[in-house]
């Protein structure tokens, strides 16, 4: 079994707050993993540690068996780690095509080739009709897609998706789920942070749960959602017992 990513005993403290607390996690190449947990659990921080936007206070991050803990974010992108931002950060004044082209330039030096690759990816993600619109004018749903398209344009090996479904209506969600599955199907390893459980159950073969910075569960989606500690993390202490009682 080959692990593309290994997070080894990683801790991140912000002052007195421990956002990520000794998390260890190994991810198989080609898999799609859900990362869930209540608000403030440390999911985004863990993504920042993997993508290089934050340095761990403790622990290591290994990518393809190489220690990348000290590498800055842009070097990790070159290695093939791409992320989307939970709060989308488009290049506001640039068009959709130009936004994606910045990502495409990572593997294409020539401008024409980068633009061509950007257009292709945009079409795949349903952004074809709005290629020339400035990013600032897009709807929330389109911005989320743009965020995804830009990350994809870097031709990543590992893709970290931070709540790409948040803020979408049910029909927009239905549209994007197959897009994510298609990404996995071409062999890109995906880790997705998602609050929309239906999508997680639908897409992920494995789910890990963070709560207050700690990894509290790891397994198949069905198992994890039945895990007592997970239910309590979401619904409060004793909730699992109360649910159990209600079912009897």
């Amino acid at each position: 079994m080959t692990f593309i990513l290994e997070v080894q005993g990683v801790t991140k403290r912000f002052g007195g707050l421990t956002a990520v607390d000794e998390v260890s996690l190994a991810v198989e190449a080609g898999s799609i993993t859900g990362l869930i947990g209540p608000n403030g659990a440390g999911k985004t921080t863990l993504f920042s540690l993997i993508s290089g936007f934050e340095r761990p206070s403790q622990g290591h991050v290994m990518f393809r068996a190489e220690d990348i803990t000290a590498l800055p974010a842009d070097r990790r992108a070159v290695l093939g780690i791409a992320r989307t931002f939970q709060i989308v950060q488009p290049f506001a004044k640039l068009s959709v095509a130009e936004n994606i082209a910045v990502g495409a330039h990572l593997r294409h030096r020539s401008r024409d080739e980068a633009i061509r690759s950007a257009r292709e990816i945009a079409k795949r993600l349903g952004l074809g009709p709005i290629l020339e619109k400035p990013a600032a004018s897009l709807t929330v749903a389109a911005r989320k897609r743009l965020e995804l398209a830009r990350a994809l344009a870097t031709e990543p090996v590992l893709l970290l998706l931070d709540e790409v479904l948040a803020g979408l209506n049910p029909s927009e969600m239905r549209d994007i789920v197959p897009v994510i599955r298609a990404i996995r199907d071409v062999g890109i390893t995906v880790i997705m942070v998602e609050h929309v459980m239906q999508a997680v159950m639908n897409l992920c073969e494995r789910v890990v749960v963070l709560n207050q910075g700690r990894l509290i569960a790891d397994g198949k989606p069905r198992e994890v959602t039945r895990d007592q500690r997970v239910i309590e993390a979401y619904l409060g202490k004793g909730a699992a017992a109360r649910l159990e009682a209600a079912h009897v």
Binding site: F53, D74, A77, R83, R150
Partner: peptide
Amino acid sequence: ENENSARALGVDT
């Protein structure tokens, strides 16, 4: 436009 996004896309800002 956005240094963070640029870094995420592999730009050595």
